[in-house]
Design a protein around this nucleic acid. Structure first.
Lengths: 212, 212
DNA sequence: GCGTAACCCTACGCACGAGTAGGTATGCTC
DNA sequence: GAGCATACCTACTCGTGCGTAGGGTTACGC
């Protein structure tokens, strides 16, 4: 009919990214179950069968979102926290990159952190990513400890790293809900809690429960 | 027919608790959407219309779970952390109560923390409860600060409190996934990160970002 | 012993949303 | 310009699960 079709034909790679963008947006707002494939398709400016053709089922689509956002985040952090820096410097740069990422990709963060948790099929996927982060932080602490000629049990190291990661995630969540807050300032606050506490541990200062 | 009915008739108050028990269990395992009212009813040993008659719609049922578990948790903490204790002692007792609660009610914790997050209608409910906790922690820090003749901006206080609460939640999550771990030991580890860091802040030691 | 209220059931209606069948148009290759 | 792959659509099927209609039975007051 008309020589100008209502919507352009685009190469697969481009459409896939548009679909993922839409999916991340809708999943983050509604949650996995409440999100509908129709809404995602509409938001991507495409019809539903195309989504199925390119990205597969709803579950596969969610995993694809998880992977893209997770990879982006890990790369942002890894790129900033070079392994040859001093521990505090490394922690600081990692945190800056992390909060910067969350500030810039609030939707992506919401998908990762708020939605994937809890939903059985995805919790494992997420746990793997968090485990990598925890491992990095634990490795950093261990490295700094050994430099001081000190050493603590692997499990203690893991738990402390877990707490630091958890605190960061929590502040990231706070950041996502406070659009006016600055990522860098949040990172500084996090350092004030994390590093001061961790530095004490590195110097062998520990807290012991009262006898009572 | 038979003079012995297959299932006993029980007073409303009892049945309601049984239903809530079942609901918490099923919601925690499956998540809000994937959980079915049929499964909850079956698990409670009752038929579906009874659930609707007593606790209302699925959403209302979930909110009821949230309230019961949340109230239990807050009471456990408030009962342990008396306001007249010193800051570190108070924090320690609060953490012990908190991790003790999570260790003993892993299902309840999962409903609160993993499921309610993300799902739009409930996130607010949960946020309110967390806000109360943050407020308590922030108040505690503020009190301790004033005792030292020091003071920091309200927003900084809130963010630090938020980080501490987040770290605790994160460790609670770790605890829920490690059945062999002892709640009290986890609380001690948390103190080692939280208190050592917070104590530094209380004494006016802060970390500043490098100039670069 | 008789009404009435509380407790409890089986069996359905109905909407919503995942996934698909089957077909059309556009551009690229030879 | 015939053939073919790729991009894209409308319009369905069908399962699943929320919520309810309508009715039965036990206890308790009087």
């Amino acid at each position: 009919m008309s020589s100008v079709p209502a919507f352009k034909r685009l190469p697969r790679a481009v459409r896939e990214q548009q679909m993922l963008d839409a999916a991340v947006k809708v999943f983050s707002r509604r949650g996995f179950h409440a999100a509908s494939m129709d809404e995602i398709a509409e938001d991507a400016g495409i019809s539903k069968p195309m989504v199925y053709a390119y990205l597969g089922t709803k579950e596969e689509l969610f995993v694809a979102c998880l992977h893209r956002e997770g990879t982006r985040m890990m790369q942002a952090i890894a790129g900033a926290a070079a392994p040859d820096l001093a521990a505090d410097e490394r922690l600081w740069r990692g945190l800056k990159a992390f909060f910067g990422f969350v500030g810039a990709h609030r939707d992506g963060w919401a998908v990762l952190y708020r939605q994937a948790r809890g939903e059985q099929p995805f919790a494992g996927e997420l746990a793997t990513m968090r485990a990598r982060l925890v491992e990095v932080v634990a490795g950093m602490l261990d490295h700094a400890l050994r430099a001081e000629g000190r050493e603590i049990a692997a499990i203690d190291l893991e738990v402390v790293a877990y707490a630091l990661v958890g605190a960061s995630e929590s502040l990231a969540d706070w950041l996502a809900d406070h659009p006016e807050a600055e990522p860098e300032k949040t990172a500084t606050r996090m350092m004030n809690v994390a590093w001061l506490g961790a530095a004490q541990l590195l110097h062998g200062v520990t807290w012991r429960p009262p006898a009572d």
